[in-house]
Nucleic acid binder design. Structure first.
Length: 804
DNA sequence: TTAACGAGAACG
DNA sequence: GTTCTCGTTAAA
């Protein structure tokens, strides 16, 4: 019986987005399994590519000559049956390539690295041999490219004088360390000691160490060094047969130096206990159910998570806990590590690729039962999931912006269904979609309406900045906010200041002629970066110097506009002498670990004000923070996005929740130019339900989510007319297959019509039920392949979250 | 006549 | 993504 394998190859194009069949050489038949990575020859030149085995079956027909699997990259399947199936589903639903889906499920190091080499197999002209090959019999493709001899080499290849060789390298490597163990008996060492010179102190020391070890213990080179045994001593000992050296696989543990004090479960209050028991019931019964856990800030959602996870672990199953990247703070990790110790694996962007791989292996080997991580952790290779939790479920970062454009919430529910386990969506401000599903009983609603220990919600004051300006205060700080900050400094309390960056940036404008410095490639103003003293385009990365005079009218009154964190910090220092400010933004947190360091400093009260962007709004718990200020509450309200009110409400509610988490009462001051806006007013009143009602009403009137689903098609081309013509054509192609219930918006130019010197258009399809739509889009994509190859980019976003 | 270029198809 | 084929065009 011969076996063949269905393999998805790493060639991300539409035409190759399907399984290819390969024969399996006898030596692999016993080992190969679906889910393994393999190397296969592909295409005319049989170049080597990475592939994923998705199925193994018996050879049926002999009609077609099959190529054979070249080698195995894994000794065990890296993708489970479940993940293989999920990848297939995701590829279809998000209009992505199946390989891309599998690659996103795995740590980055497991993606193959390709290299091309030219190897000599016969005599070649002398000059080429010496100048290009320099006496070697193999050079890299890049070397040949640099020397401009590619065409000559290709000719030589046809004459079988040289060979072009493809290499697939696996970057995934477990870190290994060198260790030493004794090779001889206690008595033997005694004898050796007699034999060595009295002044060979190092050797004597090494003998002592070896003698003190039994054959089960071993020491690493680093440990031996600490004892005073150098590597040269070890080497000579090895030569004399005193010891043995071997390699041991280790994990790069980013939390190695940290000690986590174990914590015990806290007593749950009535609401928490109710939520817990509802969830516990489904855990016990192995039932799939989606819960929406709506709990006000500070209501103890995390404790409910922790206790349900405990139940799952005790049942012998794994738990998956998703947290938005910016909320994945050391504080958050600590709570899980303290409760579950080594059973926790943490995956976040701060880890190096190697560290991520190690955490992944720990999960794969079932050494870690609890996975805490950001979006991509939803693919964690847990084999038996007992619960999936998505904290802050309303966060838009759960949707991946690149292909595959998946939403972690959808993936979580898919996996929950597969594993027959509950999925918990937690938030103080659930997305309208989730809240609406709870109303329709698609999700089960669980509410925590009180803060733990019955701490009151903080008082929220909304300051009208228009009045402030009228009364002659030009500052970015209202009098109330400044007084509040002063008071906290005097009382030895702390404040958090949020600068809402969304829809906001600092740009350069000429005060005489109104000229704004724009990017030469994109129709967008460039942003000022004080740290590098340059202007940057946030879309294409174009960078140039800060203009000293206006390029248009030569005026020197070209000035910076807008408010950045640096500017706020500077002004604050001028206004408040005693202000000790910690600033957190992309500039100060770029370096690894700086996040944590800054938070630690604030926690240790080395500063009285924490100033930052969105990243300070989440999951932080500082008991001495009694004032939270929002400098610009409404910069996002004006954006052309139907979710902008929702996002503003969520942000204000989240950040308000940072105040008064200790025994002292908290205050929140929101500065706004639209103080009467309902998003701001309901946030002030901590009134989610009224906001929900009002917003649902508006969404209903304008036919938006959650009443309608959305699909976004974007088309871009170098030529504006071509792009416009094509998107109209595509829209006309799809329209006939839609029911009369569907609404087509556009096509329209995107609000930033040009980036990277390309023109972008989009069309939105709003629909309730369109069973043909997905299929039709797939058809569109396959029928437009030729145009896509010629520079017409088409991108489909299923349930998009942004429209800008 | 031959080399060069571009589009199209196929990849097991 | 890469390679090969085929048809056409440009250069010698």
């Amino acid at each position: 019986m011969t076996l063949i394998a269905d393999i998805i190859v790493d060639v991300p194009t539409l035409q190759t987005n399907r399984p290819y069949t390969y024969s399996i050489p006898d030596i692999f038949t016993d080992i190969i399994q679906p889910g393994m990575r393999v190397v296969v020859p592909f295409g005319r030149g049989s170049r080597k590519v990475q592939g994923f085995v998705i199925d193994i079956k018996e050879h049926e027909t002999t009609e077609m000559e099959l190529k054979a699997v070249e080698s195995l990259m894994d000794s065990y399947p890296v993708l489970t049956k479940e993940l293989l199936k999920l990848g297939e589903f995701l590829a279809y639903q998000t209009f992505s390539f199946q390989v891309k889906c599998y690659q996103t499920m795995l740590p980055a190091v497991m993606r193959a690295k390709y290299s091309k080499k030219v190897r000599l197999i016969d005599e070649i002209p002398e000059n080429l041999y010496w100048e290009v090959f320099k006496g070697k019999d193999e050079i890299s493709w890049e070397e040949a490219e640099n020397k401009n001899v590619l065409s000559q080499l290709i000719k030589l290849e046809k004459q079988d004088k040289v060979e072009i060789d493809y290499d697939v390298k696996d970057k995934a490597a477990a870190k290994k360390i060198k260790k030493v163990k004794p090779a001889l008996s206690f008595e033997a060492y005694e004898e050796i000691r007699e034999g060595i010179r009295t002044n060979a102190k190092r050797q004597k020391l090494f003998i002592d160490v070896l003698q003190s070890m039994d054959d089960k213990t071993s020491l690493s080179y680093a440990e031996l060094r600490e004892l005073g045994v150098t590597s040269s001593t070890i080497r000579s000992g090895l030569e004399k047969g005193w010891c043995e050296v071997f390699y041991e696989e280790i994990y790069r543990d980013p939390f190695a130096s940290r000690i986590f004090e174990p914590t015990t479960p806290l007593t749950l209050n009535k609401d928490q206990a109710h939520a817990f028991s509802e969830i516990y019931q489904t855990i016990k019964d192995d039932q799939h159910n989606v819960f929406l856990l709506k709990g006000v800030t500070g209501s103890g959602k995390t404790e409910v998570y922790l206790q349900t996870i405990r139940e799952v672990i005790d049942k012998g199953e794994g738990a998956l806990m998703l947290v938005p990247e910016i909320a994945l703070t050391p504080q958050m990790v600590q709570r899980f590590k303290s409760r579950f110790g080594d059973e926790v694996a943490v995956l976040h962007s701060g880890l190096s690729k190697g560290e991520k791989y190690d955490e992944w292996r720990k999960i794969e080997k079932e050494e870690a039962k609890v996975v805490v991580g950001a979006r991509s952790s939803v693919f964690a290779p847990l084999k038996n999931i007992g619960i999936i939790i998505i904290d802050e479920e309303h966060e838009t970062s759960y949707k991946q912006e690149e292909f595959p454009k998946y939403h972690a919430r959808d993936v979580a529910i898919w996996r929950g269904n597969y594993h027959n386990c509950p999925v918990i969506l937690g938030s103080a401000t659930p997305s309208l979609e989730s809240r609406a599903r709870a109303t329709k009983n698609v999700y089960t609603l669980l509410e925590l309406n009180n803060r733990v220990n019955d701490y009151p919600m903080p008082d929220v004051d909304v300051i009208d900045m228009r009045e402030e300006a009228k009364s002659g205060n030009p500052s970015i700080f209202s009098k109330a906010l400044l007084d509040g900050l002063k008071k906290r400094i005097d009382q030895g309390e702390q404040s958090v200041l949020l600068l809402n960056r969304r829809g906001f940036s600092s740009f350069v404008m000429c005060r005489d002629c109104g000229y704004v410095l724009e990017c030469p490639n994109c129709d967008i103003s460039q942003t000022l970066h004080m740290d590098t003293k340059t202007m940057k385009c946030h879309y294409c990365g174009h960078e140039e110097g800060i203009p000293k005079k206006c390029p248009k009218c030569e005026s020197r009154s070209i000035r910076y506009y807008g408010t950045g964190t640096q500017k706020v910090e500077k002004e604050l220092k001028e206004l408040l002498d005693d202000a000790e400010i910690i600033r957190m933004d992309v500039d100060t947190t770029r370096k690894k670990g700086s996040h944590e360091r800054l938070f630690k400093q604030f926690e240790n009260k080395q500063a009285n004000i924490l100033l930052g962007t969105q990243m300070i709004a989440k999951g932080l718990d500082f008991p001495d923070v009694t004032l939270v200020g929002v400098i610009n509450a409404d910069t996002a309200l004006g954006l052309p996005d139907f979710r902008s009110a929702e996002k503003t409400f969520q942000l204000l509610t989240q950040v308000s929740g940072r105040s008064g988490r200790g025994e002292k009462e908290g205050q929140v001051i929101i500065q706004s130019y639209n103080p009467e806006h309902y998003a701001i007013q309901y946030a002030k009143q901590h009134d989610y339900d009224s906001f929900y009602k009002k917003e649902m009403n508006l969404r209903h009137l304008s036919d938006y989510s959650p009443y309608y689903y959305l699909l976004k098609i974007t088309v871009s081309h170098e030529n504006e007319m071509t792009a416009a013509k094509k998107i109209r054509q595509y829209t006309d192609y799809i329209r006939p297959s839609l029911s009369d219930k569907a609404i087509v918006l556009g096509p329209t130019p995107k609000s930033i019509a040009r980036t990277h010197n390309r023109y972008h258009f989009q069309v939105l399809i709003k629909y309730k039920r369109e069973k043909n739509l997905t299929e039709k889009i797939h058809q569109l994509l396959s029928e437009t392949q030729k145009e896509q190859a010629k520079g017409m980019y088409i991108s489909i976003d299923y349930q998009p979250l942004d429209f800008i």
